[in-house]
Design a protein around this nucleic acid. Structure first.
Length: 212
DNA sequence: GCCCTGGGACATCAACGTAT
DNA sequence: ATACGTTGATGTCCCAGGGC
């Protein structure tokens, strides 16, 4: 919530600010801007807002059909962009497209009446685990965990992991350490996707419970 | 009867493709 | 360049079946 306030003030400042700092329209680096946002650079968010807010407001207004509500949705969109910039993957598409996708999906949610909850902006624990995804090996995963909010105890995590059944534990590692998709894991271990989902979900619940 | 597990349906998100 | 539709991946919820 604190981050929302922080972003709110930044967006408000950008919105009320003069356009003299408006980024160069021709070679604006969206990807770099998002990387900077992910690194906590508020000026990058401001630049992005100055650059795209008018166009985005047009897109959102067209969807929600209400200027005032569109401004609210746009504001929420920039909050989400700020908070989730770290999830942007340039190899999967352009930064500008990603920004528009975020804003449009939020507007569509609003129209559907689902704006009350912010979808996957959920449990800090899930984000924590997501942030641990490392393609190398489990030891580095454990290193990272050791310095995180999971109590800072990698040995404890290892204990908790060892308490899991081998197959569900394998699902966790494949998903969060090796970066496999759920369907890939299903193929790998010869189980339906639904089963993989259940194992991963229940394993995460068990891990959280074990870690306290 | 209760609990656990496997499994599927549905909703949401993000990226891509295409029409304008 | 922009707007919109489609698609694939993922998460959540719920139900059925089996073991106790």
């Amino acid at each position: 919530m604190g981050s929302r306030d922080l972003v709110s003030s930044e967006v408000a400042a950008a919105g009320s600010g003069k356009r003299e700092n408006e980024p160069n329209a021709d070679n604006f680096d969206y990807d770099g801007c998002l990387r900077a946002c992910a690194a906590g650079d508020k000026s990058a968010l401001r630049a992005l807002y100055l650059r795209e807010s008018k166009q985005l407001l047009g897109v959102v207004t067209r969807i929600v059909r209400d200027r005032a509500r569109a401004e609210d949705v746009l504001h929420d969109a920039f909050v989400r962009i700020w908070r989730r910039a770290s999830t942007f993957d340039a190899s999967r598409g352009g930064g500008r497209g990603w920004v528009y996708t975020v804003a449009r999906n939020l507007a569509l949610d609003f129209v559907r009446g689902a704006g009350k909850h912010s979808g996957s902006e959920h449990q800090a624990a899930d984000d924590e685990i997501d942030s641990l995804a490392d393609p190398d090996d489990t030891s580095r995963w454990l290193e990272k965990v050791g310095s995180s909010h999971w109590g800072g105890d990698s040995a404890r995590l290892q204990e908790c992991l060892e308490q899991l059944e081998p197959t569900p534990r394998a699902c966790i590692f494949h998903a969060y350490v090796n970066g496999y998709s759920q369907s890939e894991i299903g193929d790998l271990i010869g189980a339906p996707v639904g089963t993989v989902k259940s194992w991963i979900k229940r394993s995460l619940v068990a891990l959280r419970g074990c870690m306290g």
